[in-house]
Design a binder for these strands. Structure first.
Lengths: 192, 192
DNA sequence: CCAATTTTGTACCTTGAATTCAAGAATCCC
DNA sequence: GGGATTCTTGAATTCAAGGTACAAAATTGG
């Protein structure tokens, strides 16, 4: 059967995600990865075909975690409006402060690879789509129980919230201006 | 006095902007630049100190053009609300279709260099700030003449619109879904 | 026209990125 | 335990990025 792996591939993907998220695809070198994953180059290329393939797994890994986190917030008990607000507010919360300057790995990927790597773009697209659907579900729930104006198009509102979230991650990555983020959240929440 | 330059440095910066905008900083090589600017390496490094310096000029060039374009739309005659809508709608308009998949060079730069190149980040920051101020001015105008609810915080609304614009450029770069962009515009314009 | 000065393109250099490979080590099966 | 197999390690390889040096050519003031 041969020698068995001396490391956990899933943990390696998680570590790679961390690096790619912070540095982007192009700026992350195999040497960086070897250092962060704590394995040799041979193991790296033996387990993951190449840098691009590992990046794909990292991006997927990132997406699952982020979508799950958003869904978790949106599924908490309480009024739908508060849950939507919490989903936005999370982007400006103190507990995510250390992540803020990384921006969103999906946005980063689209910005860096958009138009040149359709596969990566497609992964990000599906991440954003799932997030938007989760937002829409919460909005529709709020409309059903009268918290939100049922006359509005839930899909439209979900698109707006998703767009707002994306814009907020850009602002967050640019400089840690928490107040500005809160201002955006307040603006949109007082409108819907 | 010696020989004078055989090319127009401003035109060269414009060409470099085009390249950097499409490919990003890291993915653009000196060879690419030499090809696009139509000059030799000697002239390139003689006129612009290095790749990073040229990128800085390109980013500035981009910012001036974009801010001016936004201000131009916002200063057109007619009701303030229509002008704000036009500013957003422009991002989904047919005449900007060929630019859409490039995304916003500011967003691209923040995504790629944010946290690693404070100077570049600062330039982008100032671009976005000027845009947001222009939006705020138009909003305040709309509030003064009764088109927009004067009870709302204009600064907050401007932040929201700016954030929406940033998010829209991300969506646009990901895939040319014009309808989704229109949906976002409609959503935000029907709320304010 | 001459000298000074600058441009220009090519050739060259250095560094590091991305990947491959050879040799050794661990594992299982018989 | 021997052999087949798969993993690990780190050195070797390849290639291009980013920039420098240089010599030839061109332009201007005097």
């Amino acid at each position: 059967m041969g020698r068995l792996k001396q490391f956990d591939p899933e943990a390696a993907v998680a570590a790679a995600t961390d690096l790619f998220w912070r540095q982007g695809y192009g700026a992350t070198t195999p040497a960086d990865l070897v250092g962060a994953l704590g394995i040799g180059k041979g193991s790296l290329y033996n387990t993951f075909d190449n840098k691009r393939a590992l990046f794909g797994e990292a991006l997927r890994h990132y997406g699952e975690a982020r979508v799950a986190a958003l869904v978790a917030v949106l599924n908490r008990p309480g009024p739908a409006r508060a849950r939507l607000q919490a989903a936005l507010e999370r982007l400006a919360a103190p507990e995510t402060a250390h992540l803020r300057r990384r921006g969103c790995m999906g946005v980063n990927t689209v910005a860096e690879l958009g138009g040149r790597d359709e596969a990566a773009t497609a992964i990000v697209h599906s991440i954003f789509e799932r997030m938007e659907r989760a937002l829409q579900a919460a909005i529709e729930e709020g409309q059903r129980n009268g918290e939100l104006d049922a006359g509005r198009d839930a899909r439209e509102l979900a698109s707006l919230l998703m767009t707002t979230i994306l814009g907020m991650t850009v602002i967050a990555k640019m400089s840690d201006r928490t107040e500005q983020l809160h201002r955006v959240v307040h603006a949109v929440m007082s409108l819907i």
